[in-house]
């Protein structure tokens, strides 16, 4: 085959592959439009976690005089350590003093990236208990996992 014909042939191949990609994107787009995007419960589970920690503090299950350990949160508050460290951000403060920090919960304050679906969904709670002010910040970045099984 001469060179010009070969170049023309390659151009057609490129257009053909591009067309396949275009069809695939349209098809996936159609499915997403039909079924809608995934249900997002990260905000709900952040609120649930925040309430659980708050209940734990108010019921006096954990000693809030010292720095908190993960093990203490797991055993006394009934929050699984692995799930907490894998999928959540957590910060508990008493009178501006941070008692525990799991990952950097300050990323919850980046308001500019709220539209980003991969940005954690957070919950801030403040309350006064026994004359001392407490602040709980929880964020979830968990997504459902679909796999073989």
């Amino acid at each position: 085959m001469n060179r010009k014909a070969a170049a023309g042939d390659q151009t057609i191949s490129f257009a053909w592959i591009f067309m396949l990609f275009f069809i695939a994107i349209m098809l996936v787009g159609g499915v997403v439009l039909f079924f809608g995007s995934d249900i997002d419960i990260r905000g709900i589970e952040s609120a649930q976690m925040s309430n659980k920690v708050k209940d734990c503090i108010i019921s006096g299950k954990i000693d809030m005089k010292n720095k908190l350990e993960l093990e203490e949160i797991e055993k006394k508050c009934g929050i699984d350590e692995k799930v907490l460290t894998d999928y959540f951000l957590l910060s508990i403060s008493k009178e501006e003093e941070q008692l525990i920090k799991i990952k950097d919960a300050t990323s919850c304050d980046f308001k500019g990236t709220e539209d980003n679906p991969y940005y954690p969904r957070c919950r801030d709670d403040s309350f006064i208990f026994n004359g001392e002010s407490y602040s709980i910040k929880v964020g979830s970045h968990q997504f459902s996992r679909r796999g073989l099984g």
Binding site: E45, Q48, M49, K52, E74, G78, I79, D80, V83, L84, D86, Y87, F88, Q142, S144, R145, R146, G147, L148, G149
Partner: peptide
């Protein structure tokens, strides 16, 4: 975990130790 098709399942973790 929920399985509604052969060989595939969707899972999500919960933090409450129960």
């Amino acid at each position: 975990c929920v399985r509604l098709s052969q060989g595939r399942k969707t899972c999500y973790s919960f933090f409450n130790r129960v």
